[in-house]
Simulated scan of single mutants.
Amino acid sequence: MPSVAQILKSKSESHQDRDLRVVTIDADASVFEAVKMMSTFQIGALIVTEGIEHSIVGIITERDYARKIVLMDRASKTTPVRDIMTANVRYVRLNDTVEACMGVMTEHRMRHLPVIDNNRLMGIVSIGDLVKSIISEQQFTIQQLEHYITGAHT
């Protein structure tokens, strides 16, 4: 199984036309600003930071917006991100496997996992990134089996 590091590398190679830096937002910013940033960057989650050192204090997702703003009839322009973010941020490390990430996402019903290395935010992996990696691995295995069965050598 590929590692998180391999997934992040693959993302950067396949999206050379896009800036793949991790998009963050300050905890005191409005939820409206967070949703606007997610739309601009076409992403489903933002890492929430605060202070001069930009310490990670949470994550805000489209799901948070839908459940904690829209369904509760709150005003996104006046509600700070800190009021609806998920503060207990689960994360993975560069050497974690796709399988480990899927386990965390499944167990905690999440779609985005920050990647931390040496207390530094390296990226985010999404459920889509993991599924793409799994499909790629399966296609490779199928090709190898087909070559084996037909006697073709690569």
Rank of each mutant, 00 (worst) to 15 (best):
45 A>L: 06
54 H>F: 04
11 K>L: 04
32 F>V: 03
45 A>P: 12
105 M>G: 07
109 R>A: 12
90 R>G: 10
26 D>A: 08
139 Q>R: 14
33 E>T: 14
59 I>K: 05
86 T>P: 00
136 S>D: 13
11 K>V: 04
19 D>Q: 09
57 V>P: 02
128 G>H: 13
91 Y>W: 13
63 R>I: 00
21 R>Q: 12
120 R>M: 09
9 K>V: 11
10 S>P: 15
145 L>S: 04
91 Y>N: 05
55 S>W: 08
13 E>F: 10
111 R>I: 14
111 R>K: 13
143 Q>P: 07
133 S>Y: 09
150 T>L: 05
153 H>E: 11
99 E>G: 02
73 D>H: 09
5 A>C: 05
2 P>C: 07
149 I>R: 07
48 V>I: 06
136 S>P: 04
154 T>I: 13
106 T>E: 05
116 I>H: 01
5 A>Q: 10
6 Q>K: 13
31 V>N: 01
149 I>K: 07
123 G>H: 03
99 E>D: 08
27 A>Y: 04
67 R>H: 15
121 L>M: 10
125 V>W: 03
109 R>F: 10
71 L>H: 06
65 Y>A: 01
25 I>H: 02
72 M>F: 09
60 I>D: 01
154 T>W: 14
69 I>C: 07
132 K>W: 11
85 M>A: 02
74 R>N: 01
34 A>H: 05
41 F>M: 11
76 S>Y: 07
38 M>Q: 08
26 D>H: 10
23 V>K: 08
60 I>C: 06
120 R>C: 10
100 A>W: 11
140 F>P: 02
112 H>T: 03
139 Q>T: 15
137 E>C: 05
153 H>I: 15
138 Q>N: 14
121 L>Q: 03
4 V>W: 06
80 P>Y: 02
97 T>L: 12
52 I>L: 14
103 G>P: 00
142 I>R: 11
133 S>T: 15
150 T>W: 02
126 S>G: 04
87 A>R: 15
58 G>W: 01
66 A>Y: 13
92 V>Y: 00
150 T>H: 05
150 T>I: 00
36 K>M: 13
148 Y>P: 00
14 S>A: 15
52 I>K: 15
43 I>A: 09
103 G>N: 14
19 D>L: 12
13 E>W: 06
16 Q>S: 12
34 A>L: 07
146 E>T: 06
151 G>D: 11
117 D>H: 05
111 R>D: 06
44 G>E: 13
25 I>T: 09
50 E>F: 11
127 I>F: 07
62 E>N: 07
49 T>L: 09
52 I>E: 15
114 P>I: 08
65 Y>F: 12
